[in-house]
Design a protein around this nucleic acid. Structure first.
Length: 109
DNA sequence: ACGGTGACGACAG
DNA sequence: TCTGTCGCCACCG
């Protein structure tokens, strides 16, 4: 795949590193990739890439743990199903970030 | 070319 | 708490 920018390449890498059974947020990814206030751009990329790459896009949620991207998965329940298949509890379209948030303190990009 | 538009998030009031 | 505002930046028509 050809990325349009180093930022996109980093985003791809970070998403590929999210552990099974954990989740992270758009803002966290943007920050790790050097554009701390471009969480929005990360979301845009997810939607675009969802059709092309076999990455775990379902592990990326908004800062409150809501499944804001579920509409990008064909079936409206697909995102929740994928999360639950990994042991992540989804209640009222939301995940408990205290339990499942991926610790990115020591990640190396 | 260019304005509208998001899988967002921080902040003020 | 809850709501509105604004910054952000690649994409699309």
């Amino acid at each position: 795949m050809k990325f349009n920018s180093p930022f996109e390449e980093k985003v791809y890498f970070v998403v590929s590193q999210i552990p099974i059974g954990e989740v992270t947020t758009y803002g966290t990814i943007a920050q790790l990739c050097g554009l701390k206030s471009s969480a929005r751009l990360v979301g845009t990329l997810m939607g675009k890439w969802a059709k092309v790459y076999p990455l775990a896009f379902h592990r990326v949620l908004n800062r409150n743990g809501f499944l804001t991207g579920k509409h990008a998965f064909g079936d409206n329940n697909e995102m929740q199903r994928l999360l639950e298949a990994e042991g992540i509890e989804v209640i009222d379209n939301q995940v408990d970030m205290k339990k499942y948030l991926w610790n990115t303190e020591n990640i190396i990009i």
